Computed example of a mutant assay.
Amino acid sequence: MNAENRVDFTQVDVLPILPSLNFSQTRQFYIEKLGFEAVENLCEEYMSVRRDSLELHFWNCQDPTLSESSSVFFRSENVWQLYDDFDKRGVELTRHVDEFDRPIDKFHVRDPHGNLLLFGRRLGPPSA
């Protein structure tokens, strides 16, 4: 990174836009299974859900290969609290392991259309 042109990204929100094959199924999964809440949508071709500071947007898609190939990665210090919450809600979770079959600080969920939601522990600050 060029030290002379530093930009402060600490106040930037990143809002992934994932494909949805069916808004009703997507909304139901994210609200009932993952504990999100619906966000008012301004058009029929777009929808959003939010859970605390996690916010996902969806566009209406007709190609299942796009949703099966899409993903988003969330990092948090509280990743295992989220894991426990999802587990209690009956969400099918996959916990990642290393080459020695030891658990690592990552797990993932697939939504009904194949979008991959990967959750991991937030890493320390970047090295200078």
Rank of each mutant, 00 (worst) to 15 (best):
S53K: 12
S71K: 05
Q25G: 11
A38S: 12
S24W: 02
D63I: 06
E44N: 06
E68T: 14
V79C: 10
H113T: 06
R102W: 04
Y30P: 01
S76E: 01
T26K: 00
N115R: 01
A3Q: 12
F119N: 02
V7E: 15
D85A: 14
V14W: 07
L117Q: 04
R121E: 06
R110H: 11
L93S: 04
F9I: 14
S20P: 03
F29I: 06
R75F: 09
G114A: 12
C61E: 10
L123C: 05
N5I: 06
R75S: 14
R89F: 10
L21F: 08
K33M: 13
W80C: 00
E40S: 11
E44H: 07
D8Y: 14
V91Q: 15
P126F: 08
Y46M: 08
D98V: 05
R95Q: 15
D101A: 15
F29C: 06
P112K: 05
S53Y: 09
E32D: 15
R102N: 07
F74E: 00
D105M: 04
H57W: 05
D85M: 14
N41M: 08
R27F: 01
L93D: 02
D87M: 14
M1E: 07
F58K: 01
T94N: 11
G114Q: 13
N78A: 13
M47I: 12
P112R: 09
E92V: 15
K106P: 02
V97Y: 02
Y46D: 04
E55I: 10
D85F: 13
D111A: 10
M1C: 07
L82T: 13
N41G: 07
L93R: 05
S69M: 08
L93P: 03
P112Y: 13
E68Y: 11
Q11V: 10
G124Q: 13
D84E: 15
S127I: 08
D85H: 09
V97K: 03
E68H: 15
A3C: 08
F9Q: 13
R89M: 09
R50F: 01
H108E: 13
G35N: 07
A128I: 08
